[in-house]
Write a protein that binds this DNA or RNA. Structure first.
Lengths: 211, 211
DNA sequence: TTTATAATTTGACTGTTAGTCATTTTATAT
DNA sequence: ATATAAAATGACTAACAGTCAAATTATAAA
């Protein structure tokens, strides 16, 4: 039946409209200074309606984070060149993540917002949930590293998934530092760029194969 | 005059008692599920009194974070051996941080709680404030790396403060990953220990001098 | 077209909690 | 014993996430 299909589509559309509205508000004022009433007004809906589509404010924010991860996943995928080594592609992925943060600082913020809660205590949905889907940044990184080990460009004494998670954790730490500790950078006269370059240097030397 | 000195001492003592009480409550239930009324009850004071000693709930939490950083600073200081190379001491510092997280998981959580807000938008006090004091973990790390560059154990092409901040950011990322992404570890069959060892391997190879 | 039914939306309302402040209690000085 | 200053109180306010009975709108049937 065509009507129920249309309704489903409309429902999905409305969900997206709400996320759009929330994005505008959250990105402008920060999630903690944004109210559901403001989101409702931006979406031209009543507050009650928001709760027909989402269980909570946090869930809306989770959806924004999911958008962020989807963008990042696509960028990772694009950054891989088939004719380059695994090591080179791994480095390219890292640089792509840096580009992502520069290009989408608000999406990045929505990602790190969740990082302070551990998944075991998360209320409604899982902090890690997005990483059990087939396509996600960590998975892409792991595959790339596997290829790097296979093609001999990356050291083989650390399993690909361990190495991948280590690098993922590292780069997250680096990006979080740069994004949240501008004052330390200023105070010590260090440029974000310096940290990035230093990170690249360390990783390159740290993971390359030395046969 | 003895009385005003005693009063100052008592005031300091009371502040500490309040932080103690808040610690008990926050560590048991998590800061977001703890109320100021609960803290007041634990401290055997009225809620109003809490606000004579602290401007806000967040400020109390900030004090807990400061305690955490003080403990970590002491542990870092202790872990340094004068008769070891700068490289060895840098690695020891990293391992000490891991020990800290194992020994004081709640203090560690109180540290990462602040990491999602960037300093520029912080309301009352600065996310980075603790790092402008003479003694702090990052400063100790920088000094150690400087010595490592001087004694020839650490590569000299990256300035000590840049390298130090890079490693600090890295290890924070690693520890945050391990603390908050247990489900990913489980799902992929990776042990926290594996990540740590992998990190150690990468850093050692990444920063050692190769004359 | 009219009426009945189902789906969707509304916004006033509730409960919770951070933070305030006029009043009371306690400590010090005279 | 009295006056004054310091410290503590807890009832109160404001803000806001989330709810739900009632109203509105869309679809189906007569």
């Amino acid at each position: 039946m065509g009507i129920s299909e249309r309704k489903k589509r409309e429902k999905e559309q409305r969900k997206n409209d709400i996320i759009d509205a929330a994005e505008k508000i959250f990105f402008k004022k920060g999630i903690n200074n944004s109210t559901m009433d403001e989101v409702a007004e931006e979406a031209e809906l009543s507050k009650g309606t928001l709760y027909l589509y989402f269980k909570s404010k946090e869930e809306i924010h989770f959806e924004i984070k999911t958008r962020a991860l989807n963008i990042l996943t696509k960028m990772f995928t694009k950054s891989i060149c088939e004719n380059k080594t695994g090591l080179e592609n791994s480095m390219r992925i890292g640089k792509t993540y840096v580009d992502f943060v520069k290009k989408h600082p608000n999406y990045y913020k929505s990602m790190i917002y969740f990082e302070s809660n551990d998944c075991s205590t998360c209320q409604f949905r899982d902090n890690c949930e997005n990483f059990f889907k087939e396509d996600n940044p960590l998975m892409i990184s792991t595959k790339t590293i596997s290829r790097g080990i296979a093609d001999g460009s990356i050291r083989s004494d650390i399993p690909a998934n361990v190495l991948s998670q280590t690098l993922w954790a590292q780069i997250n730490g680096i990006l979080q530092f740069i994004s949240t500790k501008q004052k330390i950078l200023e105070f010590t006269g260090v440029k974000a760029e310096d940290i990035i370059n230093s990170q690249i240097e360390i990783v390159k030397n740290g993971i390359k194969n030395k046969d």
